[in-house]
Design a protein around this nucleic acid. Structure first.
Length: 478
DNA sequence: GCATGATCATGC
DNA sequence: GCATGATCATGC
């Protein structure tokens, strides 16, 4: 069959692909689709069908690039549209499966960069809940090659994945181990495992992936927009060739270790309101020398979560660490493997500790951290317990009654309720507690509560326990 | 108004 | 002093 593009020429393929913008597979290939035997559950279906029907090219799933002779790999991925109409990645971009046996022996260049991951042809469709990808409109098409600084960081990431595999710890891999290039789980469930070369323990199947934050930058680049206003940490290619991103960041913080909040303010020229709840986080921005109204580009690309923590003189940490509130309905509908909380356990964090000297808080330590495997499994248990409580209508224990038999009221006058979610005392790592502007901010309960007969409850979120943060992040040396 | 990072308040 | 439930400050 005569193709409408030159299969050996990158530009020809890319230009042809771009003509698909504004269309959908369903709208263009009504008859052809009927002849295909399609499953409803195949999430990777769109890419394969585009190759087959649009490019008239037989898909392959081997280690070679889709358009092998041109050295181009086709990937399709979803977009969300914000209220501002800007596009964002619906999820991480999953690249090739990690072959643990090859990783340990190959170079970054051979294993990753020069293979099917080095030059991508990306087709972004507009995701809508419940709408089949084949019906979705293609919104953005373009190719992606990594900028030089990004290649250095991705190489550092790849080397980390290689090292862990060489140490016989492929089963302990986590997306949080790395910055831009992640090792994300791939497979229907936790039972999708593979052998690894340096240990007898079976490891979860994982694939190379680009973090959602990184994909946002690709999207912006293809769309010819900037995603917000960014400040860069890395100012020269040489810098990132000589040091890891991690070293570069921590060194900047090290320069201010021992300095009080006031001293840092004076030194950086950032004027602050000490009573503001984001005071410490603004100080951190100042240390990294990024203007307050700018996002830190490298952190955005790596989806890094920054947590600022106060430590008391005796090393005690008073408060546990919160996360965004969850919707009960979302947990009800999710499986752990694809849940938001699992993502949280595989995220990379920058923890910044300010320690009291009895008088004032001084910058004491900054460290990148991600959760080890055994602790991730513990969070999974807490999450499953939370889901169980929601599923079975067992959210409430009782109202909080005072000695006179009256309902106790909160400061804002709302009745206080006791619940059955996993409590601080039940796990050394993670628990559930309220998290809203006040207790009248509610989310729907998918199953009516059996005790109080209520269909909604104050917003809640998962918390990392204060003592866990102290013992496993603050006090531990890595 | 609400999402988010962070801290407060009170009973035991 | 801890555990638990609630709320604050900011930015958009």
């Amino acid at each position: 069959m005569e193709l409408q593009y030159n299969i050996e020429d990158k530009n020809s393929i890319i230009q042809f692909a771009k003509k698909f913008v504004g269309k959908s597979i369903q709208s263009e290939f009504v008859e052809e689709l009927k002849l295909l035997d399609l499953s409803n559950n195949d999430k990777g279906q769109l890419g394969k069908v585009i190759e087959k029907l649009y490019f008239k090219y037989e898909p392959n799933s081997n280690a070679k690039a889709d358009f092998e002779k041109a050295g181009l790999e086709l990937k399709s991925s979803g977009l969300k549209q914000l209220r501002s109409e800007e596009y964002r990645a619906k999820e991480r971009l999953v690249l090739s499966i990690i072959n643990y046996f090859k990783v340990v022996n190959e170079s970054f260049e051979d294993n990753f960069l020069n293979g099917k991951n080095g030059h991508l042809l990306l087709i972004f469709y507009l995701y809508a809940k419940g709408l089949n990808q084949l019906n979705s409109e293609i919104k953005l098409v373009g190719d992606w090659k990594y900028p030089i600084e990004d290649i250095e960081i991705i190489k550092q990431d790849w080397l980390k994945i290689q090292k862990k595999t060489q140490q016989g710890k492929a089963h302990e891999l986590s997306e949080g181990d790395t910055f831009y290039l992640g090792a994300c789980t791939k497979g229907a469930n936790a039972t999708t495992v593979r052998k690894q070369p340096c240990s007898d323990v079976l490891a979860k199947q994982r694939a190379y992936s680009l973090k959602p934050g990184y994909v946002n930058h690709i999207i912006a680049s293809i769309a010819g927009e900037t995603v917000g206003v960014y400040g860069k940490l890395i100012t020269s290619t040489n810098e990132i060739r000589e040091k890891t991103l991690e070293e570069i960041v921590i060194e900047k913080f090290r320069n201010y270790y021992g300095r009080s909040v006031d001293e840092i303010s004076v030194q950086t020229g950032i004027k602050l309101n000490i009573n503001a709840k984001n005071f410490y986080s603004i100080v951190s921005h100042a240390i990294l020398n990024i203007e307050l109204n700018k996002e830190i580009e490298e952190f955005e690309k790596a989806d890094i979560v920054v947590k600022t923590i106060r430590v008391e003189e005796n090393n005690n940490i008073v408060q546990s660490v919160s996360f965004p509130a969850f919707e009960f309905e979302q947990i009800y509908n999710e499986h752990w493997i694809s849940s938001e909380m699992k993502d949280i356990t595989e995220r990379k964090y920058l923890y910044i500790f300010f320690k009291s000297d009895g008088n004032t808080y001084r910058l004491n330590k900054a460290t990148f951290w991600n959760m080890p495997l055994s602790d991730r499994n513990e969070v999974r248990k807490v999450w499953l317990e939370t889901k169980y409580v929601i599923q079975n209508g067992k959210v409430f224990k009782d109202y909080d009654w005072d000695k006179n038999g009256n309902k106790r009221l909160s400061k804002k006058g709302n009745p206080i309720r006791k619940n059955n979610f996993p409590k601080m005392s039940e796990s050394l790592i993670c628990h559930v507690r309220p998290h809203g502007n006040d207790s009248s901010e509610m989310y729907t309960l998918p199953v009516e509560d059996k005790t109080l007969k209520l269909n909604e409850y104050s917003k809640q979120c998962f918390w990392f326990k204060n003592t866990y943060v102290r013992d496993e992040i603050y006090l531990k040396e890595y």
